[in-house]
């Protein structure tokens, strides 16, 4: 299995297009950091505009608010919506790419079971996903800390504001990146499943993105009918639960409780939903692949 995994990883990281995703992430993060470096106060002003009639926000407040932790959160807020596309580029190519090149049948002539072959492919796609996230973490978190320094983190939700002290943040990012790895692996497993049906990788990649986009729109819509019926079952609803690590509890006087998470059971529930989806997609892909006539 390890040998199979090494071969699949070699295949992934040998292709130049694999690095397009790394390049795209580096470009987006860098451009965002540059924009906030030069015009961050305008961005902060836009967010604070809603409450600046009640509070005094000095220039010093805005400068301190725009620290590395805040910049990283803003980057993740934008990038983690786009990242499924980058993940689908590789996972959607896993089987369909081999079929397209006509190497699938050849690969299966080796003394390796189809299940093992599929697991090797899936684990390789997952490792690619995690390495992409690790790269993002280094650039977005460590890069932003190096550029903007550290301070308290303030999260602006739709109807509440959560502030955490600077020594209570780093562990939240580790947890959030861990959760995001599971969320993106869900997308990878969906692309992996769709890849089984196609002989060309473009189909599964576009299909995966279409599903993610439609589901994301449904997840963000505030329609009571969908809130109760569809939303709880969409994996996209649970993909944003990494943010839950930045929602804190407060005591009776409204003061933040250090090290607290507002609703950990909700995050764990979302995590379980994603894990169920991964198991469902991957096992379906294996089941279908085992019964499939390999013609190319």
């Amino acid at each position: 299995m390890w040998k199979l995994l090494k071969i699949e990883l070699f295949k992934i990281f040998k292709r130049p297009r694999t690095y397009i995703a790394f390049g795209a992430i580096a470009a987006i993060v860098f451009l965002f950091q540059i924009a906030l470096w030069f015009d961050g106060k305008t961005y902060i002003g836009l967010i604070l505009g809603n409450i600046d009639t009640s509070f005094d926000f000095s220039d010093q407040f805005k400068t301190r608010l725009l620290n590395g932790y805040f910049v990283c959160f803003a980057v993740l807020n934008i990038l983690l919506i786009q990242m499924p596309l980058l993940v689908a580029l590789i996972a959607g190519d896993a089987i369909a790419g081999e079929a397209n090149m006509g190497t699938l049948r050849l690969s299966l002539t080796k003394p390796v079971g189809r299940t093992q072959y599929m697991m090797g492919k899936f684990f390789a796609s997952s490792i690619y996903t995690v390495s992409l996230l690790l790269f993002l973490a280094i650039l977005a978190l460590l890069g932003s800390i190096a550029l903007f320094g550290t301070n308290d983190l303030v999260i602006f939700r739709s109807i509440s504001i959560h502030q955490m002290s600077r020594d209570d943040i780093f562990w939240r990012y580790i947890a959030a990146f861990g959760y995001a790895a599971v969320a993106l692996t869900t997308v990878a497993s969906l692309a992996f499943l769709l890849s089984v049906f196609a002989d060309n990788s473009i189909g599964p990649i576009i299909a995966t993105m279409s599903i993610v986009i439609v589901f994301t729109i449904l997840s963000e819509m505030n329609i009571p009918l969908y809130d109760r019926t569809i939303k709880p079952y969409l994996f996209t609803t649970h993909m944003v639960a990494w943010k839950g690590f930045f929602y804190v509890r407060s005591n009776e006087e409204g003061a933040t409780i250090k090290g607290s998470i507002e609703n950990l059971p909700a995050i764990l529930k979302s995590l379980s939903v994603l894990l169920i989806y991964i198991v469902l997609f991957v096992s379906s892909a294996i089941w279908i692949f085992r019964r499939k006539d390999i013609l190319s």
């Binding site: 919506i81 739709s158 944003v240 929602y247 995050i267």
Partner: peptide
């Protein structure tokens, strides 16, 4: 005064607390 940001901007995770 009231505080409210459009959910489209914040892309909140709905953990049932709001």
């Amino acid at each position: 005064k009231d505080y409210k940001l459009p959910k489209g901007i914040t892309l909140d995770y709905d953990d049932g607390s709001e």
